[in-house]
């Protein structure tokens, strides 16, 4: 009996001691981060095992690069330039090709406002229309142009001196009463014929 009591007392004492040590350890780790870190690292190493440096570096690697699946990051200068240039139509003449650049911008030609206005608005001097022009530019000889105009590669704007045409009568979108009558009569005729054909089949 006394032996059993002594054994249980020993177990209880060991338990109390272990609990006290654990409590002290927890207090110590809470009060000292360095101790906590060291214990954590030691515990981690004991669980994971000691890795070699090569294994640690290999662990973070995305793997070796596959062969034959490589795409270049950059292109040669000429290729890049070709891609960056705007796509234009092929020049039709070698002379244009020799220009090697965008076409020059045409100079701004000021319009002769006052003489043209006088010509269009029915000035006292009658303007002669182009006779037999056949599509050619009208004669602008009697319109005084300001000096210093020209030098561009584009022709000056074509100014017509002919009398403007009178606009024709607009075509109405709604049919006339005659058209309505014809259409109604046509449908009636078709209906009459179809009805005549259906009557013998029913008897």
């Amino acid at each position: 009996m006394t032996a059993i009591r002594a054994r249980s007392a020993r177990r209880g004492a060991i338990g109390i001691g272990v609990l006290g040590a654990a409590a002290a350890l927890s207090i110590a780790t809470m009060s000292n981060p360095w101790l906590a870190h060291s214990l954590g690292e030691g515990l981690r190493e004991s669980v994971q095992g000691v890795k070699t440096v090569a294994a640690m570096l290999a662990h973070r690697s995305p793997g070796q690069r596959p062969e034959g699946a490589l795409a270049s990051l950059k292109q040669k200068r000429q290729g890049v330039l070709n891609e960056r240039l705007p796509k234009v139509r092929a020049p039709s003449s070698p002379a244009y090709e020799a220009l090697a650049g965008p076409p020059p911008t045409p100079p701004i030609v000021p319009l002769p406002e006052a003489p043209l206005y006088a010509a269009v608005a029915g000035a006292p001097t009658p303007l002669t229309p182009v006779a037999g022009g056949g599509g050619g530019p009208p004669n602008l000889s009697n319109i005084p142009l300001p000096g210093g105009v020209g030098g561009g590669i584009f022709a000056p704007p074509v100014i017509t001196t002919a009398t403007p045409e009178v606009p024709q009568t607009p075509i109405s979108a709604v049919p006339e009463p005659m058209s309505w009558t014809m259409m109604i009569l046509g449908f009636a005729l078709i209906g009459r014929v179809m009805r005549r054909r259906l009557v013998p089949a029913s008897t």
Binding site: I14, G17, G20, A24, I27, S31, P33
Partner: peptide
């Protein structure tokens, strides 16, 4: 025997706590 074990456990606890406090001082 029981009293001795309890005493040793208590001493161990106090020792670890004191060690932790001493180690925490320089930080």
């Amino acid at each position: 025997l029981r009293g001795g074990l309890v005493l040793s456990g208590a001493l161990l606890s106090v020792g670890i706590a004191a060690l932790a406090l001493v180690a925490a001082e320089p930080s």
